[in-house]
Design a protein around this nucleic acid. Structure first.
Length: 284
DNA sequence: CCTCATTCCTGCGGGC
DNA sequence: TGCCCGCAGGAATGAG
């Protein structure tokens, strides 16, 4: 549920607080947190120790820290992951999974994750773009994102528009919250078949995606509870700006009609039944 | 290749 | 009060 704005908030914190620092020691407290690092915890720690972090980068919801070795520490927050910069003497968080200490003896980097959907891995040679995320599309904030290629790819699909928005190989960084918000802003229902959308309609949707992501980032991200935080543990305040997400039975901010919740892909979709009429031919 | 269901996990809150 | 169940959901995986 941390989506592009929340992950970007974390990236900025990492760039400020850990870039330029050298890893002294690594502790893996829970093997599941590094399950994508197939070589195991000792290998993971060995590739990090003595390495200097040179930057903090992001694509969609993935973060990576390029190292001076040419490798990269790759991370995904999953549902509940946090990367926190904490004093080394601060007590361990309940769901502390991985801890990185630095040679300067300053604040350490902690990966904390309640639901363990997230994780860290070191990708050898992945500093420029980690191999495991080569299939992830550029995100709509990336200057190299190609609008027309996206429009064409969506129109070639045979699925519902929300499935397409959530497909990280088409456009990355958009999750359930911002997909619902962008569709509401565009007056599109989540089950609208992709092949029936015109080029102009898709360009308007893309503009709405960028608008909502930009506003959320300016607000420091969305928070429902204390799980979505920056590296200092602080929450954003975009939640108060949400138009439909999580607002079942509450009035649409545009027309007052009660917001509707539908089951969708083992989760939820929120729409205004009047602003986003259900298409006659719907795709799930 | 494309589409889509399933699966992983923990804490919370509602119902009984 | 306590137990059970549904729900929150990103993305890898494999079926068809």
């Amino acid at each position: 549920m941390p989506e592009l704005p929340e992950v970007e908030v974390v990236r900025r914190g990492l760039e400020r607080w850990v870039a330029g620092r050298t890893v002294a020691a690594v502790e893996v407290g829970h093997p599941r947190a590094i399950r994508r690092h197939l070589a195991g915890a000792a290998d993971f720690a060995g590739l990090l120790a003595g390495r200097t972090i040179v930057a903090a980068r992001r694509r969609g919801k993935y973060l990576w820290l390029p190292l001076d070795s040419g490798d990269a520490l790759l991370g995904h927050l999953g549902m509940s992951g946090q990367l926190l910069v904490r004093p080394s003497e601060a007590p361990a968080e309940v769901h502390l999974r991985v801890r990185l200490a630095f040679t300067d003896g300053g604040r350490e980097l902690r990966f904390v994750d309640q639901r363990t959907f997230g994780g860290l891995a070191v990708d050898p040679g992945g500093a420029e773009l980690p191999g495991p995320i080569r299939h992830i599309a550029r995100d709509p904030v990336d200057p190299l994102f190609e609008d027309e290629a996206f429009v064409a790819a969506v129109r070639r699909r045979r699925t519902g528009i929300k499935r397409a928005l959530l497909d990280q190989s088409l456009i990355s960084g958009v999750g359930n919250i911002y997909a619902d918000e962008a569709l509401w802003r565009s007056g599109l229902h989540w089950a609208r078949p992709t092949e029936t959308l015109t080029g102009p309609a898709l360009r308007r949707l893309l503009a709405a995606v960028r608008e909502v992501l930009g506003e959320a980032l300016a607000a420091g991200g969305t928070s429902f509870d204390s799980l979505y935080v920056n590296v200092n543990g602080e929450s954003g305040y975009f939640e108060r700006s949400l138009a439909v997400y999580g607002r079942r039975d509450e009035p649409c901010r545009r027309c007052g009609t009660p917001v509707r919740r539908d089951a969708f892909m083992n989760r939820s979709s929120y729409t205004c039944p009047r602003c986003q009429p259900r298409p006659r031919r719907a795709r799930y």
